[in-house]
Nucleic acid binder design. Structure first.
Lengths: 199, 199
DNA sequence: GCTTAATCTTTACAGCGTTAGGATTGTGCC
DNA sequence: GGCACAATCCTAACGCTGTAAAGATTAAGC
């Protein structure tokens, strides 16, 4: 059967199509991954014809970009809100970072380049998030290290949580242990290391 | 003009089409990235019609998979060959790891999931590479740490080089410094940290 | 209430991965 | 050498995609 617009819609105009498209795109993203983010698939879910999306986004990639923009703000907010768990973790922001990645795997991959290289370049919010991530990792260490060591140490911590998060959501860490324990122990190792690893 | 097969080929049969396709695919991969890995684009470069690829690969994804297989063996070889630079680096295999990632950015992204999720699952060589990467990172530390600490410390080092490599090839490290210096200093920080960070 | 602009529609086009079936060439047996 | 066969390549075509063009429907402003 040929796909046709949703007849069950009350009015000819949708009213809030832009956000409806973004929401459907978010669903597709988490359900099937970045490579399945198709314009036609998205508009089908909303119950609207494909070209109607062009009144709200200039291209399919722009939808992915809008998604990444929204996700970037979400993640930045989540990180700067600060982790409420203060059980003596040495890198609490690091744990919050990995937790967000694990909670939003496809979104994170989207923001960090997978499938849509344009996202990394053209999204202001995503660029801000990346800068902020680095800053946050530095801030996580600044009461423990001198200003001279901070740039490299911050990069060290950022790369660590970035890599750890990606390995986790790619299912490539196959020890039998609980993932949260693993994250904690790795960050603890990094933390104690940083405390003694002055140059 | 409609695209037509390469008339300048000597014989009707290509002779080594399978490898020619893989080589062209590798070129496309490095030139334009994983998302541009199209079957038609690849066969166009070889000067052959698109469906002829189906005599050597069951699908387009299978070409990407073959590419990843080959790349995985290449990387494993490069890593186990061992770094010849012995200038006292604390994590020589770590530096070799990041160096390979920087030299083959798109290939590395392909092997670790971007665009072709099937690659991570179905490629034997890629699975082997990932296991091996972890083992190599552990071996990099085994004369410095006890057996009990090795699993977490190996994961720590692997996640670090994985994340650092990805951040570098994504162009998200924008300090003015030389990238190689940065890698060295980050790994040095990790190394000295590990030396003192016994639990 | 009419005009205008915004929103959604159908229709159409080129490019994609893939299938089906015909043309051409290398291979092994007589 | 010649012939049957299998392997390899081709063109044609299908359904899918993102996108452009142009017509239908509705909301907004005077």
């Amino acid at each position: 059967m040929p796909t046709r617009p949703n007849k069950s819609r009350k009015s000819y105009h949708h009213g809030d199509l832009r956000n409806a498209l973004l929401k459907a795109a978010r669903d597709v993203l988490e359900e099937r991954g970045p490579s399945f983010l198709g314009l036609r698939e998205i508009s089908r879910r909303v119950g609207v014809s494909a070209p109607s999306a062009y009144h709200h986004f200039p291209s399919r990639d722009a939808i992915a970009l809008g998604l990444a923009e929204h996700g970037a703000r979400e993640m930045a907010e989540c990180l700067t809100a600060g982790p409420r768990d203060e059980t003596g973790a040495l890198a609490p922001y690091g744990e919050a970072y990995v937790a967000f990645v694990r909670a939003n795997p496809a979104l994170y991959r989207l923001m960090f380049g997978e499938g849509f290289p344009a996202v990394s370049q053209y999204s202001h919010a995503v660029r801000e998030l990346r800068k902020r991530s680095y800053e946050i990792m530095k801030s996580n260490l600044e009461n423990r290290l001198s200003d001279a060591e901070l740039p490299i140490a911050g990069l060290f911590l950022w790369a660590l949580v970035h890599g750890l998060g990606l390995l986790l959501i790619d299912g490539q860490i196959t020890t039998g242990e609980d993932d949260r324990d693993i994250v904690h122990r790795v960050l603890q190792l990094a933390g104690t290391g940083l405390d003694h690893g002055r140059t």
